[in-house]
């Protein structure tokens, strides 16, 4: 087991129903793109969730509307959590409409995150597509905080268009670093974009890493992950060292409701981060 999947972490108070949300107060709301916001929330009382590890997710709850699985993009030891939410339905609409001082519900953290320790000693390639960057952000910080433990670090971030890039300011900071190579590309752009254009896999040939000793973390739309993982494998990265973060319909987030099954895995419990070697036979078949 790579990460402690225990969702408990409530301190002190009597044990609540395991699937019940815990109230958190919204501290700030930042607009990332026209349909995406980043929420910073803090526990409103003594009860709070355990500190999430990079790649884990929480179930965020809008009172009376419902829950949605949202990856954690930052977690502080003080219990502050950062989630980036895209409006794709009623729940995410409600979550996106909050203002500081509002209460949202949180339960989690759930799932297995990025096996950062396993990547030590070798090169790391991080490939993010669109909203695949938020779940990878804590991984990138974790690697940078122990930079000496890794070889070369390549980050490739692709989005549909320049206006779809999230964490824009942070990306600029990362790009200035010399100990990590950060490439950004978009599928298409106007003349005002001076960066690279092309699907995320077109940046891979430029990346410098030693394939047999490389661990790759890939997160983004399923098709983008499949293509990226195949391209990495073609470059010689061992398939069992390519990790992708899957997304499926989730209701319970703890492996009890059956919705998120993908092949042999419960994405909520066994994933969302899974080995490409285990997923490849299923990713190649439609509608698994």
């Amino acid at each position: 087991m790579l990460a402690d999947p225990s969702p408990s972490g409530a301190s002190g108070d009597p044990e609540p129903p395991p699937l019940a949300p815990i109230p958190y107060v919204v501290r700030s709301v930042t607009t990332e793109t026209p349909d995406t916001v980043t929420l910073t929330i803090r526990p409103s009382a003594t009860r709070r969730i355990a500190t999430p590890r990079p790649g884990q997710f929480n179930m965020l709850y809008a009172f009376g509307v419902g829950e949605s699985a949202i990856s954690v993009s930052r977690a502080s030891l003080e219990g502050e959590l950062v989630h980036t939410v895209r409006r794709v339905g009623k729940v995410t609409n409600a979550l996106s409409a909050v203002t500081p001082g509002d209460t949202v519900g949180v339960r989690g953290p759930y799932g297995r995150g990025w096996p950062i320790a396993e990547a030590r000693g070798g090169d790391v390639v991080v490939i993010a597509g669109g909203l695949g960057l938020p779940p990878l952000r804590p991984a990138i910080y974790a690697i940078l905080s122990q930079r000496e433990s890794f070889g070369r670090v390549e980050v490739i971030y692709g989005a549909r268009s320049p206006k779809d890039l999230v964490y824009y300011d942070e990306i600029q900071t990362w790009r200035r670093r010399t100990d990590v190579r950060f490439q950004t590309t978009v599928d298409a752009a106007g003349r005002d974009w001076y960066g690279d254009v092309g699907v995320v896999t077109t940046r891979l040939p430029d990346a410098r890493f030693d394939p047999p000793k490389t661990t790759a973390f890939v997160c983004g739309p399923e098709i983008m992950m499949t293509l990226s993982a195949k391209a990495l494998a073609d470059r010689g990265v061992p398939r069992d060292r390519i990790w992708v973060s899957m997304e499926r319909n989730m209701k319970c987030a703890v492996g009890l409701c059956g919705h998120c099954q993908f092949g042999p895995s419960f994405v909520c419990r066994d994933g969302p981060v899974l080995r490409f070697s285990a997923l490849e036979p299923f990713l190649s078949v439609k509608e698994v």
Binding site: T185, A188, G190, R191, W193, G195, D196, V197, G198, D206
Partner: peptide
């Protein structure tokens, strides 16, 4: 260096569909 492959039409802004680099 870097070269942008662009497509465009009179009724819409020019769009870069790919950038090409060394090699």
């Amino acid at each position: 260096g870097k070269v942008a492959l662009e497509v465009g039409a009179a009724d819409r802004p020019t769009l870069t569909v790919q950038t090409v680099g060394p090699g």
